[in-house]
C-alpha cells in the first residue's frame, strides 16, 4: 500500500485534471448506475479457489456500471472506457470486490509512472485538425487526430499520445483507449480486472490469475457518429432487464512461470489456461433512494478480497488500495466492512 500522502496526491492529480469540480462524486467513473444480481459459481470454480463466492452457493451481488470519464456530463456515446465494479456479498456481512473495465491493459506500471503520465497528459485545448493537415496525414498513411465531439473543447488526447510515444510500456493501454468505442449496452462489453491476483485452491496450491467478465449477449459497440447520443446506456439497461436478465461469465486466466505478475501494462498470451468460474445474472435496477445507494454511495476497493484471493505485488493495485479509500472519504461514500470484526 502507498503511504497516505501519496494516496491523497494520486486522487488530487485526478481532481486537478477534471473539466469542472464534481463535488462529492467520484473523480473518474463519475457517471454510473447500480444494479443488483446473483452470482453462481461453476462446478469447477471451487477446485481452483476456496473463496466463499466460488463454493457453488448462489451469492447476492451489487454491480456498478460506469462511464470512465471524470465529470458530471454523461456522454454515453463517446468513445470511452467503461467500468463494471462488482461486490460479492458474503455470509458474514463482508464482501469481496472485483473491479474491471473495458480496457484490457493499463497504461502505467507504477505510481511514479502515473504522476509522470498525469503531468504529460493534462487537458489541453482540443480543436478539429485542419483538413490540409489531415490530407498530409493520409499521404503519410498515418491516423489523423480524431474530431472533437460537439461541445468538446479540451482533451488529454495529445498529451496521452506524447506519453505513449516516449514510453513503450504504455502504448498498448493508450492505443486501446483510442479505439475502444462506445458499447451498445453495459451488458454487451467485456470487462477486465487487469491486475494479477493469487487464488488458493482447497489443496493449498496458490495460482496467479487474472479475471475478466464476458457478456453472454456478446460484445457490441455502437457505430461511431459525429454527433453521438449523450444518454442511452441507463435506459437501455433498464429496458433490457425488464425483458430478461442479462448475464456475464466470469473467466479466470491462470498465469504460468515466467508470466508478468506485477505489471498491469503487459497482457498474458491467449494460450494460458482459461477457467469458467461462474455466471453473474443481473436481475434488477434499484430505483429512487435505493439507486443512490447502489449507484453512488457504494464504495468499492480492488483489494477488498475474500479469504482465498490475495492481491499480487502489482504497484498500481497496491496504490489503488489507498487511493480508493481516500476518494471514498472525500466524497462521503459508504464505508464497508473489510473483515467480520471490521478491523
Amino acid at each position: 500500500m502507498v503511504d497516505p500522502p501519496t494516496a491523497k496526491r494520486l486522487v488530487q492529480v485526478i481532481h486537478d485534471n477534471l473539466p469542472a469540480p464534481v463535488g462529492e462524486r467520484r473523480p473518474v467513473h463519475t457517471i454510473g448506475i447500480g444494479v443488483n444480481g446473483r452470482f453462481v459459481a461453476s462446478e469447477v470454480a471451487r477446485s481452483y479457489c476456496i473463496a466463499e463466492h466460488f463454493d457453488g452457493e448462489p451469492v447476492d451481488v451489487s454491480i456498478r456500471f460506469s462511464n470512465g470519464l471524470g465529470g458530471l456530463e454523461q456522454h454515453d456515446g463517446w468513445s470511452d472506457v467503461r467500468g463494471m465494479a462488482v461486490r460479492f456479498h458474503l455470509k458474514n456481512g463482508t464482501g469481496s470486490d472485483l473491479i474491471a473495465t473495458t480496457l484490457g491493459e493499463f497504461f502505467v506500471r507504477n505510481v511514479d509512472d502515473f504522476f509522470k503520465f498525469s503531468d504529460t497528459a493534462k487537458r489541453e485545448p482540443f480543436r478539429r485538425r485542419h483538413w490540409l493537415l489531415k490530407i498530409l496525414d493520409f499521404l503519410q498513411l498515418k491516423i489523423p487526430q480524431r474530431n472533437p465531439y460537439p461541445g468538446e473543447t479540451q482533451a488529454i488526447d495529445a498529451g496521452a499520445l506524447r506519453y505513449a510515444n516516449q514510453h513503450r510500456f504504455s502504448q498498448l493501454g493508450i492505443f486501446q483507449v483510442g479505439l475502444i468505442g462506445a458499447p451498445a449496452s453495459y451488458a454487451r462489453a467485456s470487462y477486465h480486472a487487469v491486475h494479477t491476483f493469487w487464488v488458493t485452491a482447497p489443496d493449498g496450491v496458490r495460482r496467479p490469475v487474472r479475471f475478466y467478465w464476458q457478456p453472454v449477449a456478446g460484445v457490441r459497440n455502437i457505430k461511431p457518429t459525429p454527433e453521438p447520443c449523450e444518454k442511452y446506456l441507463f435506459d437501455e439497461l433498464k429496458k433490457r432487464l425488464k425483458r430478461w436478465p442479462a448475464r456475464f461469465m466470469l473467466m479466470m486466466t491462470i498465469g504460468e512461470e515466467g508470466d508478468t505478475l506485477d505489471d498491469c501494462t503487459k497482457p498474458w498470451p491467449g494460450t494460458r489456461l482459461r477457467i469458467a468460474m461462474g455466471t453473474l445474472t443481473l436481475t434488477e435496477i434499484p430505483e429512487g433512494e435505493d439507486q443512490a445507494t447502489a449507484g453512488e454511495r457504494i464504495s468499492f476497493n480492488p483489494c477488498r478480497l475474500a479469504p482465498g484471493i490475495e492481491p499480487s505485488n502489482d504497484p498500481i493495485l497496491k496504490a489503488r488500495l489507498g487511493a480508493y479509500e481516500v476518494s471514498r472519504e472525500m466524497r462521503g461514500g459508504c464505508p464497508f466492512k473489510w473483515r467480520a470484526d471490521n478491523a
Binding site: L141, K142, I143, A164, N165, Q171
Partner: peptide, 27 residues
C-alpha cells in the same frame, strides 16, 4: 503494439523508455 515490437526486434531495437516513437504510424 506487439506487432510494433516484432518490427523493432527485427531491427535490433529493444528500448522501452525513453523512446521517440510515433504511434500514428501504425497503419
Amino acid at each position: 503494439t506487439d506487432f510494433l515490437r516484432d518490427q523493432e526486434r527485427l531491427n535490433g531495437d529493444k528500448a522501452v523508455a525513453p523512446v521517440n516513437d510515433d504511434l500514428t504510424l501504425l497503419p
